[in-house]
Design a protein around this nucleic acid. Structure first.
Lengths: 252, 252
DNA sequence: CGCTTAGTTGACTCTTCTCAAAAGCAGTGG
DNA sequence: CCACTGCTTTTGAGAAGAGTCAACTAAGCG
């Protein structure tokens, strides 16, 4: 993986907020020190760590999670290529949660000093990176609403809408399909429900013909129908409509 | 309310992260332009707004919320005196949620320019303010875990633990009691449960003798017992133990 | 082919929701 | 001072949603 390749997803994501010049892109690409592979199931960052690098996910899916005293685990966020794991945790004494690779992952390491440098030197990039963390926070709030007040099928439908748009935004969707490299157990840990119930919920969504699945590929035949069903409003992802040049554009 | 008085709670909160010099405190106090009253039930910031000022809550409780398409509302965060409502939303095009006064509130307005100035001029304050927003985010994650994977009584117990520590941190707790100026409906909207179930859940906590209530005052006779029951670990609030000089210190 | 992991299904239990109504409490006007 | 009103809290009862236990099927792999 070249340094350039490392950043394509990130750049593509950031451009949904603001156009970047070639110089901006180069500055980003040059700040990557090296990249590391993580096997599915391994931890990228552990609770209690104080990382020396900012971790940029290049390939694969990862998740923020906490282990529960009763033994299960709760996944609080999904990270996909282009997502930064810990832009700002450097300030805190230690991570209050872990980040685990949900599939095989490739992670680029960016030295803290370089990121700080970017934030100071380049106003556009600084704003774009802050935008990214604010969107992460907005997603967190939306998940809270989802968990608190939507029934199971709509909850999962909402998640699928979100991930379709997010994968689309970094060029990982093909039409209305995207790869969801998660087990039903992991989905259940995310949505706060049991494995059995998740299985039945997915069956429900399939039988309503809102989604189809083929292995770990999810297809949303009619995005508008699913968004409507799940009361999904993409506002919280703060993608600027005028920048959004994907096939989903007409739906949004 | 004098400018000085406006900031005592904020200063007190920030000092759980890092000691502030008199100069730091003065700089904060001087940045307040004026203060505004909000009646219970009114909106401090509405979804879609792009605020000109950063709002600092001085008195009362407020909450971040979203209205649901089905008609209810979901409260995603509580704001208490010393909390900033929107340090960093200035970057986004518009608020993706509203902030409503849950009780009568007094809010200090800080011009964006002044905050930016503080962030640039004063490294200690800048770090302390960032710490505040990171803690807000950590709280959000913890709520997500709570909603996703704890049964009702532990969920509410967890919330009460958190609010006891947070009110304590800004000098609003008396011993193990604090004022919770919310209706059971509002608590239910927060914890993603029905009003009836919230009522029964509170009764359960009372009958377990984990809390007592008197009007809107909640008393936690034995914080350790409640924390244990609710699997509450205060790590996520990122309060530095060495700074924590309250009566709860021995418990933490 | 046997082993392991992931997905599926059934039956039963328990939690939580909804509908409905009563009781407590504060403010208001007669 | 009292009846009236609106809001909040409390309680009951039945229905729906979600969890648990357990077994079975499907798919990948050495």
């Amino acid at each position: 993986m070249t340094a350039d390749g490392c950043c394509t997803a990130l750049i593509r994501k950031l451009e949904h907020f603001k156009e970047l010049s070639d110089q901006d892109k180069e500055l980003l690409a040059k700040s990557v020190a090296r990249s590391v592979e993580f096997a599915a199931g391994s931890d990228i960052i552990k609770q209690g760590d104080q990382p020396d690098y900012v971790h940029l996910l290049v390939q694969g899916w990862a998740g923020r999670y906490k282990l529960l005293p009763e033994g299960g685990r709760n996944i609080m966020a999904y990270l996909i290529p282009g997502d930064l794991c810990d832009v700002n945790v450097a300030l805190l004494e230690e991570m209050d949660h872990s980040i685990g690779a949900l599939s095989a992952c490739n992670v680029a390491l960016i030295p803290l000093a370089k990121i700080r440098n970017v934030m100071v030197e380049n106003r556009t990039l600084a704003q774009a990176l802050w935008w990214g963390t604010l969107v992460d926070e907005a997603v967190l709030r939306e998940w809270l609403v989802t968990l608190g007040s939507r029934p199971a099928q709509q909850r999962v439908g909402h998640l699928i809408c979100e991930m379709l748009i997010r994968t689309e935004a970094v060029g990982l969707a093909r039409g209305n399909s995207f790869d969801l490299p998660l087990t039903q157990q992991e989905l259940a840990d995310t949505m706060g429900m049991s494995l059995v119930h998740m299985n039945r919920t997915l069956r429900g969504l399939r039988s309503r013909e809102l989604i189809t699945t083929n292995g770990h590929t999810v297809t949303v035949e009619n995005p508008r129908a699913l968004m409507n069903f799940a009361a999904f409003d993409p506002l919280y992802l703060h993608q600027q409509a005028h920048k959004f040049r994907s096939s989903l554009q007409e739906v949004l």
